[in-house]
């Protein structure tokens, strides 16, 4: 469900991992969904010389207002796909912000000021048939946890994206996104924390 206040306020996030983990696709889909909902976005990738591996990170701002600086100094949410990204960016998270980690690859510390949501996305994705959909699992979880955009807009963006590129991957990504969203709802009574807590 999309909370009314989520639509009214600005949300700044950093998504980071290694190249090939679908970091940029995660952000592109999130931004497409937000644009579809009539909001402003900035999507600022850090581009490296590597095509595979290396670091991939993207700063995203979603806002009802005009966005000036696209830099994100203190993110409201941090989504990390690997350990080095966690180590680097966790200290920048706004107090009370959301830390969403791929616990298949990240050992997140207990405690701290953040709300921690840990999903073993890579393992779950492998169970579903392809590690490549780990990013869709985390996207579903992020959207469900924050309501920054609606799950429907996200599904539309995802279907459109994969439909144009690899139609055979579209359905699996849809399932992955839904899975991620469900896991967050299920965890609402028992908060997820730490490694492999689902």
């Amino acid at each position: 469900m999309v909370a009314a206040d989520a639509l009214q306020s600005e949300h700044r996030l950093i998504v980071a991992g290694s190249g090939g983990q679908g970091i940029l696709t995660f952000c592109k889909l999130l931004c497409s969904a937000a644009v579809q909902e009539g909001r402003n976005v900035t999507y600022l990738p850090s581009y490296g010389p590597e095509v595979r591996s290396g670091t991939a990170r993207c700063r995203v701002i979603i806002s009802p207002e005009t966005i000036h600086s696209p830099l994100v100094e203190e993110p409201d949410s941090l989504i990390v796909f690997n350990q080095s990204s966690y180590d680097r960016f966790a200290p920048t998270l706004r107090p009370g912000g959301l830390l969403l980690v791929n616990s298949s690859a990240v050992e997140a510390e207990e405690g701290g000021a953040a709300k921690v949501l840990a999903l073993p996305a890579t393992d779950l994705a492998a169970e579903m048939g392809s590690v490549k959909v780990a990013n869709s699992i985390l996207l579903g979880a992020f959207v469900s946890a924050t309501g920054v955009v609606s799950e429907e807009s996200c599904l539309d963006a995802l279907t459109e994206h994969w439909g144009r590129r690899r139609a055979d991957m579209a359905e699996l990504n849809v399932q992955a996104l839904k899975r991620g969203a469900e896991l967050v709802v299920e965890s609402a009574t028992a908060p997820l924390k730490g490694r492999k807590s689902v």
Binding site: K28, N40, V41, T42, Y43, P45, P70
Partner: peptide, 10 residues
């Protein structure tokens, strides 16, 4: 510049 070139917006 690289930021405006690489960045996406609506």
């Amino acid at each position: 510049d690289g930021m405006v070139g690489q960045m996406m917006e609506a």
